[in-house]
């Protein structure tokens, strides 16, 4: 069993797994890791099932002490990770002994870093998931961010899969500060003028400081709406781009409200969703329209890669 004591919890740290599904009809957002790619990599490198929970660090990671040692893996944004005085590599399994100190600074590239511990983090399942839903104050570590003095343990005696030994350098993603996110237009594109849709696709939108796990408020050329942007409240998928009355887009992510009453001009495709978790305020997003065939082919390719990690 690995045990980590929190010395400094970082800017926004939480326990996350893939998310809480099956309760959106109860108004419960899925939550889950903002970057599923890094979540899966970190788990695979520890020999964990993809269902296990990890720690998600945002912008600044914080510092931690291993009360009990064990193996772990870091994947995602480069936060200049150090174990005592040594730099730590990302995207590979590492080992710590009791007394080691893990320090994670500011994200140099990307926004979020994931720490998986061999066995997965030991917090109770709430509605089938270990993910923290911060505004609902449930899931993860007592429904909140870790604070100084908290101890985070791995599960004892979990059956382990063979750990992914080598993470090919080809699999390590680069995090760009100007991201192209592919979208499927709709389901309410008829609420927008042709000019409005062209504006949305031809311009870059900056992520404002109003960006959290719920979603990112974007800023750029206003998108022209036909009449009003209000629709009859309906379900909101991950990556939906709502446009509110003033014509600015709002990108909805892991902790999004389950339903909403603003028209959705487009939705980011599944294969690109995880990249949004590595963008931060000031970064630019360019939306590129694709069709379902292309989107789902990209998803199948990504799924194949993810499956290789757990089978190799």
């Amino acid at each position: 069993m690995t045990k980590l004591r929190v010395l400094q919890p970082g800017m926004l740290t939480s326990v996350q797994d893939r998310g809480r599904f099956g309760y959106q009809d109860q108004g419960v957002p899925p939550a889950g890791a903002m970057d599923e790619y890094a979540l899966r990599a970190a788990n695979a490198l520890c020999g964990n099932s993809i269902r296990e929970a990890v720690l998600e660090f945002t912008m600044v990671g914080g510092s931690y002490e291993f009360v009990e040692g064990g193996s772990f893996a870091l994947a995602g944004a480069d936060m200049g990770a150090r174990l005592n005085d040594h730099g730590l590599p990302l995207w590979q399994q590492c080992k710590a002994v009791a007394g080691d100190r893990l320090t994670l600074g500011w994200a140099k590239r990307g926004c979020r870093l994931y720490l998986a511990m061999s066995g997965g983090i030991d917090v109770p399942l709430v509605l089938g998931s270990r993910s923290t839903y911060l505004s609902g104050k449930f899931g993860g570590l007592h429904g909140r961010m870790p604070v100084t003095g908290d101890e985070i343990c791995s599960q004892f005696g979990q059956e382990k899969e063979a750990a992914l030994g080598i993470f090919s350098p080809d699999w390590i993603p680069s995090y760009e500060s100007c991201l192209t996110a592919r979208v499927i237009l709709g389901p309410q594109q008829e609420c927008f003028t042709e000019k409005g849709i062209a504006t949305f696709l031809d311009n870059e939108y900056a992520i404002t400081s109003q960006a959290d796990r719920m979603g990112y408020r974007l800023e750029g050329q206003p998108i022209q709406i036909k009449g009003i942007a209000d629709i009859l409240t309906d379900g909101v998928p991950a990556g939906a781009v709502q446009v509110q009355s003033e014509g600015q887009p709002l990108l909805l992510l892991a902790d999004r409200q389950t339903t909403g009453g603003y028209a959705k001009i487009a939705c980011v495709i599944g294969a690109d969703l995880w990249r949004l978790g590595q963008t931060k305020p000031g970064d630019l997003i360019h939306f590129q329209a694709v069709n379902l065939v292309e989107a789902q082919a990209a998803w199948r390719d990504l799924s194949k890669l993810w499956n290789r990690w757990v089978r190799s």
Partner: peptide, 9 residues
């Protein structure tokens, strides 16, 4: 209607 590539409305 498609709502992204992983949901139908």
């Amino acid at each position: 209607l498609p709502a992204g590539d992983q949901a139908l409305l």
